[in-house]
Design a protein around this nucleic acid. Structure first.
Length: 184
DNA sequence: CCAACGATTCGCT
DNA sequence: GCGAATCGTTGGC
């Protein structure tokens, strides 16, 4: 549910807090192992140029799902934070609804990458704007103190590449891409 | 109205 | 490692 996440958390803190949390979409999901933060004064963010029909959910209340279509093909799932801020969920360690996910994804990685993750979870355009209220969408915070994190530059952006706002669960299998410190 | 561009993924070289 | 697929959104004319 949302709270117990603080709706006033800055988006980078929220992105870190979501690592290790449990995400369930209509019963399918698992442990969040990779996130990225997108802020309001952030050239890489959809909200940077102000409110538009597509990004309207980013300007709505915290704790709702911002779903958008990428490259005309894939869907991506975000958790909205403060006004104009959102956290992109990039990878899960799936452990619930595995059969369903496999049926949607076929062979290959299930939840490593935002497009794959959205497909595995059965995310639809209609999910945009829905609340993480424990009905269709559920977020369960990591119970313990914060897990060890890896941090690095965000993936696939052309602006604000200097902001290291990608976070991963240290040592996790199933990350969408290696982190810099992971490279040998 | 029109053209450019992705917060990506997959398949082939 | 590279390029195609694919289409809604966005911004400029």
């Amino acid at each position: 549910m949302f709270p117990p996440f603080d709706p006033d958390l800055d988006v980078v803190t929220l992105a870190r807090a979501l690592i290790g949390a449990r995400l369930l979409v209509r019963g399918a999901g698992g442990l969040i192992i990779e996130t990225e933060a997108y802020a309001l004064d952030d050239p890489a963010s959809h909200s940077f140029r102000g409110l538009t029909p597509r990004n309207a959910t980013m300007f709505g209340p915290a704790g709702h799902a911002y779903v958008y279509r990428s490259y005309g093909i894939h869907l991506c799932l975000n958790v909205v934070g403060r006004r104009g801020e959102a956290v992109l969920i990039r990878a899960l360690a799936p452990d619930a609804g595995l059969e369903q996910m496999q049926a949607r994804r076929g062979q290959g990685p299930l939840c490593a990458g935002p497009g794959r993750l959205a497909q595995a979870l059965g995310i639809e355009p209609d999910d945009d704007g829905k609340a993480f209220d424990g009905r269709e969408l559920q977020l369960i915070p990591f119970a313990d103190t914060g897990p060890a994190l890896w941090r690095g530059p965000r993936i696939g952006i052309s602006q604000a590449q200097e902001r290291p706002w990608r976070f991963g669960l240290a040592g996790a299998k199933g990350l969408s891409r290696p982190f810099p410190r992971q490279q040998g």
